[in-house]
Design a binder for these strands. Sequence first.
DNA 1: TTTAACCCGATTTTT
DNA 2: TCGGGTTAAA
Length: 675
Amino acid sequence: MAEAPATLNPAQLAAVHHLDGPCLVLAGAGSGKTRVIVHKIARLLQAGLEPRQIAAITFTNKAAAEMRERAKQIVGGRAAKDLAISTFHSLGVRMLKTDGSRLGLKEQFSIFDSDDVLGVLREAGGCNDNAVARSWQWTISLWKNQGLDAEAAARAAADEDQRVAAVVMKRYEERLAAFQAVDFDDLISLPLKLLARDAEAREKWQGTFRHILVDEYQDTNAVQYELLKALVGEHTPFTAVGDDDQSIYGWRGATIENLKRLPQDFPRLKVIPLEQNYRSTGNILRAANNVIAQNPKIYEKKLWSEFGDGEPVRLLECDSEEHEAERAVARIQALRGADARIAWSDFAILYRANHQARIIEQKLRQAQVPYKVSGGQSWFDRAEIKDLCAWLRLLVNPDDDPAFLRAVTTPKRGIGHQTLASLGEFAGKWKVSLFEALFSPTLKTALKGKAIDSLHEFGRYVNALEERARHTRGGEEARKLMLEFLTDIGYERHLHDGEESEKIAASRWSNVVDFVGWIARRAGGDEDRPEQTVLEVAQTIAVIISLAERSEDQDVVTLSTLHASKGLEWPHVVLAGVNEGLLPFRAGDEEMTPERLEEERRLMYVGITRARRTLVVSTLRRRKKGRELVAAVPSRFITEMKLNESTGREDPRERLAKLRAALAAKASAPAPSAD
DNA sequence: TTTAACCCGATTTTT
DNA sequence: TCGGGTTAAA
């Protein structure tokens, strides 16, 4: 975190003290917005609000956890614990848990992750091609983010592909309802539906919060904005904190329309720009401002800082991706070699697309530089963890068919896909879940006795386990139950049977053990959370899944996409592959709309403003195409930074050429050195 | 006809 | 790295 001054600056103070009406804080990069949010929470408590009456909404679990941590430092643990700090999605879960029944959702519903959704879509659309199913998933999600249901989508469908997607969407929605399941988009749209339709619920929820703060407001989509409006109603004051210049998620439904509409929807809106930056040097901010000045503005805003100019922003022109990676690594080593106080973790290399990381990783490994790639595969995506999650989900909601299918076949227990297909057919005919079908007395019309016996045994075991999970509370108890369960189903043996290598099996098992420890810790509670039963932990699993991630405090270089870098900062940053086609990105023959270009420019702006002290912008003169190198065009954003106005561009080759020329000149006749 | 090896190309990501 | 698509061999 940048060195924050002891007091708030005037703009920050204004934002903190505007308590009574709607407020939009335009928080430029590095302008201390989290501080503002946290201080405002403290101010609201001081004004007499209860912690539970203050909601702070973020986009990621990580941001929510950080905010709670920061709040704790200022308002103390007791108050911080009761604050309603959560993501949009977990707030949605909370609303659906308490009032979902008013929409016909039973209390123990399942939340489908994107793999589950993909599976349902393949089935609903009768298509085994993952690419097709994924494009449906994508289209449907965007529709849902715009607040369209299947019928509205059918009307909005613009081409044949979209018409098909709309048909699939209808079938998909039917299946979700049958499974008593919701997807991530539903976690926003269903609570909105609840508030829109049900006056009693609306009144209750509008009375729940007396101030709502929304972080990263520029990332909200249409439905999230509607939910916010429904929650604040006519009277609840709120604070939206965001930066139109850092809106980089338009492609997944975020819309800066929400920023434009805010003053219209709330005429009393107080707009407060935070322009003082506490992160970067003057040279870095100047480059950032120059780039973003090319975009049309909704609100005027220009960052400045009290730090000096600092090092000039450097431009590196490289001969190939390989060369670029080598030079980035060399720069890191050189800086670190020159100053022992500089840590590996002071560096980040940022790029547009994940695959760019590959070659950089290779060079870092060669140079023995420790690194981490942000946004790598999550621990929770591993097959063994998903297996166990499927079991837990099944305990929470036996009607969760995807979870049922995974659990019933993991480990293998003599129930093959013949049996499951017949069971599925039977369940479909009677419109019940697989689990329900399994206990039906008429099942014997569809299946052989032996298969039924196996199914019954499985079903009874699940029921017994559910009973125990419901009553097992606390860390140690939870651990015991989980390990016993794993022995019961023979999971460790299953891992060893399935793997070709003992080593892999052992590492999978150790993941499983970690997972059990993780469950136990959550069941055990701590000063922030009460003890929970295993079943309660299980229900929240889909939502909290990204919390347990990496330990932050390793001394390693960070590799990250520009998107994943938003909100983070490093003393020394390298932007790699700043070329036309990549940044701004252009896919083949698609034309670049002004809106697209503007979002790419904001991405560049985000990249530049991650740097505190030094920034290197690296571009390729050639890049690999097939077997040969073809010419590459440096990004237009490089020109837009206007580096040469205040600083010289720095190309070692050119410098070398100049040096040679100077030496040659010196040798013949003494000349004034041009440095 | 089926399978395995290999090569190529790649938006961006959270819940 | 990862997955899809192509090609070569059985």
